[in-house]
Amino acid sequence: MARVWIPPLLRDLTGGRETATVPGANVGELIEALEQQFPGVRGRLCPGGALRPGLAVIVDGQVGRLGLLETAGPDSEVHFLPAIAGG
């Protein structure tokens, strides 16, 4: 069970809930589990089956490089944030 932080702009789907603890070995599975609890989340986070362009997943403080395949441990903390591009 990883702890997913719901982006504020998705909280219209979670009734204001800020975090959710859901099962899943990777980010894709976590999103599937979220979708069961909060229908619509998947379509907003990954329209077309991949993370929304410009969105990054952060697992335990590290930018996930594998997108939906990024693994998450049982105590992981997961965030969805704007992707960073540098100068």
């Binding site: 982006p7 504020p8 702009l9 219209d12 379509g43 907003r44 929304r52 704007p82």
Partner: peptide, 20 residues
């Protein structure tokens, strides 16, 4: 664009982001 939430209205505001 507001993390996938449809706003439907034409605008020069391309994106809204939020952190709390």
């Amino acid at each position: 664009e507001s993390l996938g939430k449809p706003t439907g209205k034409r605008s020069n505001i391309a994106k809204h982001i939020q952190f709390k």
